[in-house]
């Protein structure tokens, strides 16, 4: 491999999945309006952006059944 070392500082990232959720990976805190952290049981989570999930704010895959489009 000849790629240079990148990202020694782990800033975390948010990936906007086409026609799907936002994936949140790395050390990013997700807070509720009162400042308490959102209950989180896994490192990388998917946040619903179609509005139809039954486990909001997390995605449950419903966006696929509803034909949600991000473009």
């Amino acid at each position: 491999m000849t790629a240079p070392n990148l990202g020694r500082r782990d800033d975390g990232e948010i990936i906007a999945c086409p026609d799907g959720p936002f994936l949140v990976r790395g050390p990013v805190e997700i807070l509720l309006p009162d400042g308490t952290p959102l209950p989180r049981t896994r490192r990388t989570v998917a946040l619903c952006r179609c509005g139809l999930s039954t486990i909001k704010p997390y995605c449950d895959g419903t966006h696929k059944a509803s034909g949600f489009r991000t473009t």
Partner: peptide, 14 residues
């Protein structure tokens, strides 16, 4: 699996 695989499917597909 409802929550986990909604994450996994995005990572697995892309």
């Amino acid at each position: 699996h409802v929550e986990a695989d909604a994450v996994h499917e995005q990572i697995a597909a892309r």
